[in-house]
Structures are given as structure tokens and as C-alpha cells.
Computed example of a mutant assay.
Amino acid sequence: MVTTMALCWRLERRDGVTIGLTAHDRDLAIDGLVYRAAPGMTPSAIVRSASLEADTMDATGALSAQAIGEEDLLAGRWDGAAVTVFATDWQAPGPGVVLGEGTIGAVETRGGMLTAELRGAAAALERPVVEETSAECRAELGDRRCRVAMAERRRFARVVAVDGAVVTLDASESVANGWGGGRLRWFGGANSGLEDSVVRSEGVRATLRRPPRFDGVGALVEIGEGCDKAIATCAGRFANAANFRGEPYLPGIDLLTRYPGG
């Protein structure tokens, strides 16, 4: 039985793209998904424990344009992708025995080789369990805590020009710096499926946090209004102070260092 075992990887990107890879020397079809042969794909030692420590594993293999390309990795398409590693009998391929599950963490590329860290479900326990106080709102504009209706605050536009991180659209913002703090989603061209944060906007121009990964001229995008997370903006622009998720008037640590007349 051991001599007929083959390792398989199922990877599901956040945009819905799913691929399968196997360490076997030929493709395997399992539950409607073809696991492409990638004999050079090898995992590090898989350690599973009952403790609360995060389970991690590294997978190393050759980069392939047909599967996981370097450009897609650097563009962030595989960030946070769900991964399942399992062993199956290549003579009768099936779901097999699950060896590890998690998401893709740190990724390193060197000399045409890919090394990806797989972080298990227990890694979520490393995050803070409660929120810290903050003067700014901790909700995202339009989410279930903010509750601002976004249907009329998003629009589709076409990219007219790209100059570094500045994107010019064929549509203008509705209010001054209205897109600042918002998100721009690409629906066409080489950037399709990617998102970018908008730092600020002016008229038809939006400045992104970083330049587009690929050429975006002529591509269709969706851009939505943003928020600077200040109580004044929440109350004045969105009339939503009742749902503000911050403590703008809570004294800070500097209160301890104040002195009379300071």
C-alpha cells in the first residue's frame, strides 16, 4: 500500500480559481478535479499535534506558468489561498487521508523554485481575541457593523491612463477625496481579480497604495467610496455616528504625562 501512495495538494484561491497538484509522475482525477503531475513538489515534515500551537508546514517545488506562476505569486493572487494536503492511492484515486489543511502564508521564490508556508487553522489563535481601543473607527465602510448602504457608492469605470500609482478613470468622484480610503477592483486585463487600496483621489484620478502589478490601461474596474474613519466624517458625510466603532474622546496614555499649564 505504501508503494502506491501519492501526495496531492488542492489549492483554492480567494477569487475561486482551484488547482490540483500531485507528487505522482502522472495526472490523477479526483472528485472532478485533475491533479497535475508535479513530481518536484515536496513537503517538509508534517507535524500534527493536539496542543494550541500553530501547525505549519513548508512545500517546495518548481514554478510553473500552467499552475503557480511567479508573476501571479508576486501579484498576490495566491495570498491566503486555502490548501489541503492529502495522500491517496494512485491506483484508485480518491479523497484519501488528509495530512494537513490551512492557508498559504509566507512565500519565497528563488532560482525558479517556490517555497510556500502553509499555516494551519490553529494559527488564527495567534491573533488578538478582543479589539483594542482606538480614536478611529475599526469597522470597514459598508460592512455589517458600519451599515452604510454601498449600492449607490460604487461604480464601474474604465482606466484611461496609468502613471505610476496614479490611475485616471473615465468617471469622476462624487465628493472631494471620495474614493480615498476605498478599494479598486480590477475586472479586466492582466490585473483581473486583484484589488488595490486607494490612498486619495481628486476628480478622475485615484492614487493607489502601490502601482498596478500589470498594465491596466483600458481595463474595467469597480471603485467604491472610502472613509478616513474619523468621527467627523462619519457624522457629517455619512450621518452614521450611531454606528461609529471607535472611542474618539477616550483619554490616551498622554494624559498621564500632562502637567499643569502644559
Rank of each mutant, 00 (worst) to 15 (best):
A165W: 03
G112A: 10
G40F: 05
A123G: 01
S172E: 13
D228E: 11
R209Q: 14
V2H: 13
D170G: 09
R77N: 05
R10F: 10
R77Y: 15
G180H: 03
G16T: 10
L256D: 02
Q91A: 13
N243K: 03
R14T: 09
D79K: 12
A82W: 05
R158S: 05
R14Y: 03
S197H: 10
L21V: 03
A6C: 10
N243F: 08
T3L: 14
I46M: 12
V175M: 04
R245D: 09
G193K: 04
T103D: 04
V85W: 02
T56E: 15
L250E: 07
V17I: 12
R153Y: 05
T109W: 06
A122T: 10
A190Q: 12
A6M: 06
W78C: 01
S197W: 11
Y35P: 01
G246F: 06
R154C: 08
R210N: 04
G40D: 15
L184H: 03
G32T: 05
R185C: 04
R144I: 10
C227S: 06
M1T: 12
R145K: 10
L125W: 12
A139W: 13
V85A: 12
C8P: 01
L208T: 01
I30Q: 03
G96M: 08
R26S: 15
V98K: 07
N177F: 02
T22M: 05
G69L: 09
G69V: 08
V160K: 09
L194N: 00
G100A: 14
D89H: 09
C8Y: 02
G181K: 04
V199M: 07
L73P: 02
D254I: 04
C146Y: 03
N243L: 00
P128Q: 12
G120T: 07
V17C: 07
E195R: 07
E173I: 06
A81W: 02
V175Y: 08
A50K: 13
V162A: 15
L52I: 12
W78F: 14
D215N: 13
T4N: 15
R237K: 13
T257P: 00
E136Q: 12
L99Q: 11
L114A: 06
R145Q: 06
D27K: 05
G188K: 04
A176P: 01
D27M: 08
L7W: 07
W78L: 13
